[in-house]
């Protein structure tokens, strides 16, 4: 009788550990899913520059596919691909993983904001868009040339800048 009880208890414990593991896995999966694909359409708080390469806000942009894609949109709209397009070479090629002024988030951010001379992006581009542009630029080396080309093709088709086709 005693042995039976013990064995029943043992099974119970094992089941609960199994259940806990399953729940933990599900939660982990859910978290992994939600942060990467979260799509927040509403307005967000105004941004300041990243403090350093370990600013906790960086992950919100760099690890979120929608923020990166939004950066790609601004990349086209601000005319960045005129110099940094697919055929860019040397230091202007952003997809080669070589960063002249450092590849950390704050360093790339500073390169975009402060190192474009008279374009004065730090003043002309709102901070949040600079965050998104930075995330996009740092994302570029992660993709195959075909993927970058496909993205460029989509951006070329957008009626912005020289290809504007709407009312004048």
């Amino acid at each position: 009788m005693l042995i039976m009880t013990a064995s029943v208890r043992g099974t119970e414990r094992r089941t609960s550990i199994g259940a806990n593991l399953a729940v933990a896995c599900l939660i982990a999966l859910a978290c992994a899913g939600c942060s990467q694909e979260a799509r927040n359409v509403g307005p967000t708080v105004p941004q300041t520059r990243p403090r350093d390469g370990a600013d906790p806000r960086i992950a919100l942009y760099q690890a979120n596919v929608d923020q990166v894609a939004q950066g790609g949109r601004y990349f086209a709209w601000y005319g960045c691909q005129a110099c940094h397009g697919e055929s860019a070479t040397g230091v202007r090629n952003l997809a080669d993983g070589q960063w002249r002024h450092g590849g950390d988030f704050d360093q790339v951010f500073a390169s975009i904001a402060d190192r474009h001379g008279a374009l004065r992006y730090a003043v002309r581009v709102p901070p949040e868009q600079l965050w998104q542009l930075t995330a996009y630029a740092r994302d570029l080396p992660l993709h195959t040339p075909e993927k970058l080309h496909r993205q460029a093709v989509d951006q070329r088709a957008e009626p912005v800048g020289n290809s504007w086709s709407g009312p004048q």
Binding site: A30, E37, R39
Partner: peptide, 29 residues
């Protein structure tokens, strides 16, 4: 299950491109 993981398709039941294309719908929705 994807919905439970918050990777829900969000472009209508017919998901027209270019909105559903690679540039405008990143991720796996």
């Amino acid at each position: 299950v994807a919905h439970a993981l918050d990777i829900t398709p969000d472009l209508g039941w017919f998901e027209y491109p270019p909105l559903s294309g690679p540039s405008y719908s990143p991720g796996h929705r």
